[in-house]
Simulated assay, not measured.
Amino acid sequence: MAAYICVEDYEKYALKHLPPSVRDYYKGGAGEEYSLKWNREAFKNYRIRPRFLRDVSKRDISTTVLGHKVSMPLGVAPTAMQRMAHPDGECANARAAQTAGTIFILSTISTSSIEEVAKAAPDGIKWFQLYIYIDRNVTLNLIRRAERAGFKALVLTIDAPFFGDRRADIKNKFALPSHLRFANFEDELSQRINTAKTGSSLNEYVTALFDASLSWDDVKWLKRTTTLPIILKGILTAEDARLAVENGVDGIIVSNHGARQIDSVPATIEALPEISKAVGDQVEVYMDGGVTQGIDVLKALALGAKMVFFGRPMLWGLTYNGEKGASAILELMKREIDLAFALTGKSKCCASLKDITRDMVIHASYYSCL
């Protein structure tokens, strides 16, 4: 296979080789896809301010997240239906994350089950992304299985009472390929995505089964239900971040759902500073969205993230060569993060990330005003 040297190389390969409906599902966003574009391009608006004549001969980019040491401040975000990219799907990505020594988050609507992923990567740090179903027994069953399988946290997605206006999926009448199923469910719930007669089967599945009445009371319910740490995924404002702290969550993922919910929301790197400022060190703050380079991770850390996650690049690596492709993505990102630390005068990334400071990154408008 060709020598690929950056995430974009793997992305080009995947978009060329995936079936059109799968390609469009993985890469698409909501509406006119303004936010999808901004997620990536907004990183360009932040300038790195390096410091030199510092000893960077020894570097350590490891960090600690919810008490667990990870090899780098980058982990694998939840993405649905990964067996559409490769037969090993989520199991391959989980093994790659385990090998890399970082966090893997499994989606509720995955094509590999909680138990299969636990068996595939028994020593990896695994979190479970949770949707709350109208039938609370469905949700409770998922939680108990994640607990028994050794998952270390629950990641509650709060920005999806319904799925967004994903026009490509509607045009393609997107459905899960017939040889696959939602592996965390049995009977109707595992196959219902393929029963829609018009439009996107996934949108119809979500509308029928996800609880659109979700509120802060449900966060309190979840805290009473499990002893696992609770992380809220989908926060974009300081107001909601403060409410998350008030409701006792353990972490926040600043996320716009890959720009797949409502168009014209800010890029997550733009939303991150106000959220970090609002909560300080009361809870750990993470971010996903638009990350494709090591310098993106550095910028996010400087703007207040404790940890960064990415999803689509892992799908591109998976499409390219299964677990080996996924591992290649994590390895190249680890190299790029290390290089970014070295060339900005930061010798190590300790548990508190004290070496990464806000003055390392500044908005481009600063230089236009000089």
Results as ranks from 00 to 15, higher is better:
6 C>A: 14
8 E>I: 09
9 D>T: 13
9 D>E: 11
9 D>G: 05
14 A>I: 01
15 L>V: 12
16 K>C: 06
17 H>D: 12
18 L>D: 07
26 Y>A: 09
29 G>D: 11
30 A>C: 12
32 E>D: 14
32 E>N: 14
35 S>E: 09
49 R>T: 08
58 K>P: 00
61 I>W: 01
63 T>I: 04
63 T>L: 03
65 V>S: 03
69 K>H: 11
70 V>H: 02
74 L>M: 06
75 G>M: 02
84 M>L: 08
85 A>F: 03
95 R>K: 09
95 R>S: 04
96 A>K: 08
97 A>F: 00
97 A>Q: 07
98 Q>T: 09
98 Q>W: 02
98 Q>A: 08
102 T>P: 08
103 I>N: 05
105 I>H: 00
111 T>N: 08
111 T>H: 10
114 I>P: 01
117 V>N: 06
119 K>R: 13
124 G>P: 05
125 I>G: 02
125 I>M: 01
128 F>P: 00
129 Q>G: 05
131 Y>V: 06
145 R>G: 04
152 K>A: 07
154 L>E: 03
157 T>E: 01
158 I>S: 06
159 D>M: 11
160 A>F: 01
164 G>E: 01
169 D>E: 15
172 N>A: 09
172 N>M: 08
178 S>M: 02
179 H>V: 01
181 R>S: 14
186 E>Y: 12
187 D>S: 11
199 G>R: 10
206 V>L: 13
211 D>C: 03
226 T>V: 01
230 I>T: 03
234 G>T: 10
239 E>Q: 14
244 A>D: 04
245 V>F: 04
245 V>D: 09
247 N>D: 06
253 I>R: 09
255 S>Y: 05
257 H>M: 14
265 V>W: 05
268 T>E: 04
268 T>Y: 02
272 L>G: 05
275 I>K: 12
282 Q>G: 07
288 D>W: 06
295 I>Y: 08
295 I>W: 03
302 A>N: 14
306 K>H: 12
314 M>T: 11
319 T>P: 10
320 Y>C: 10
321 N>E: 15
328 A>P: 01
328 A>M: 05
333 M>Y: 10
337 I>N: 06
341 F>K: 03
342 A>D: 12
351 A>Y: 15
352 S>L: 14
356 I>W: 13
356 I>S: 13
359 D>H: 13
359 D>V: 10
360 M>S: 11
365 S>A: 10
367 Y>H: 14
368 S>C: 02
